[in-house]
């Protein structure tokens, strides 16, 4: 009788364990079927979030965005992906975190094209500090970029310098290396124009002449990206000039 009871107890335990194993396995299969059904998005997060009270909606959305970025970052293998995702993640946390992340990126990935926002951020910021990026260093970084990234990097660098320094000499020094290279695309005309104006202001006749030559050369070049065409048109000179008809244009 005792043996019979022991056997029954053992049998019940075995059946229970088997039932639990079957339960967990089948549940996993069915859950995956619901979650990853082909070609359809399951529950829309936006739809669920839109039902939340406004006070917590923004916080919930931010938390989800941060978590999504963290997930993507943990599975990223490519340096470029890691840089882009870590910048996006730091941006969600705030300005201080973003600045710290930019400094870290400059340290860890000095030769990655994706580190451009970091180099631009620290360009000529608090010279002398370890994080500051000098013009020379920025120019070296520009050399590793391909078009059209290099063109945009020249542009974002110029904007940054204008924001940190009102001295035209700094802007002139920044654009000077462009005189050493032959323009390949018409988009560069805007930089040569700026260089011409800055050189005129600083009374650098030689630089002005050389910039003017390259500016005219740009006129003959094709656009790298046709969509830039309307944006990079030669502006009318500020001084009073003669119109094609020969009459003076009123400003």
């Amino acid at each position: 009788m005792v043996r019979y009871l022991q056997f029954r107890r053992k049998a019940a335990i075995i059946i229970l364990i088997a039932a639990f194993v079957a339960y967990f396995c089948s549940e996993a299969v069915l859950r995956q079927f619901v979650l990853h059904r082909a070609g359809t998005q399951s529950i829309s997060l936006d739809h669920v979030l839109s039902r939340l009270p406004e006070r917590i909606r923004a916080a919930a959305r931010k938390k989800i965005t941060i978590a999504e970025l963290k997930d993507a970052l943990s599975s990223a293998t490519d340096d470029g992906q890691i840089i882009n995702l870590s910048i996006a993640l730091a941006r969600e946390y705030g300005k201080q975190e973003l600045a710290a992340k930019y400094a870290e990126i400059i340290r860890k990935y000095p030769k990655a094209p994706e580190a451009l926002p970091a180099f631009t951020y620290y360009l000529m910021v608090s010279p002398g500090s370890p994080n500051s990026v000098s013009l020379d260093r920025y120019h070296k970084f520009l050399a590793i970029l391909d078009e059209p990234d290099r063109f945009f990097a020249w542009g974002s660098g110029l904007t940054k310098i204008k924001s940190v320094s009102e001295n035209p000499r700094d802007q002139l020094n920044y654009l000077l290396p462009l005189l050493q290279q032959q323009p390949k695309y018409r988009e560069y005309q805007m930089f040569y124009l700026a260089l011409t104006e800055l050189a005129f202001q600083e009374d650098e006749t030689d630089i002005e002449q050389r910039a003017r030559v390259l500016d005219e050369k740009c006129e003959q070049l094709p656009y790298y990206d046709k969509r830039n065409a309307p944006k990079v048109t030669k502006p009318a000179p500020k001084a009073s000039t003669k119109a094609k008809s020969g009459k003076k244009v009123d400003n």
């Binding site: 019940a12 059946i15 229970l16 039932a19 079957a22 396995c25 089948s26």
Partner: peptide, 27 residues
């Protein structure tokens, strides 16, 4: 309530799921 092709792994999993739950509750 999921639709599925049969015979298939989903149907098999559904039968196992139903039986496993039943056995657990009955035990």
């Amino acid at each position: 309530f999921n639709s599925f092709k049969f015979p298939g792994i989903v149907l098999g999993a559904l039968i196992v799921y139903s039986l496993a739950l039943t056995v657990i509750f009955l035990i």
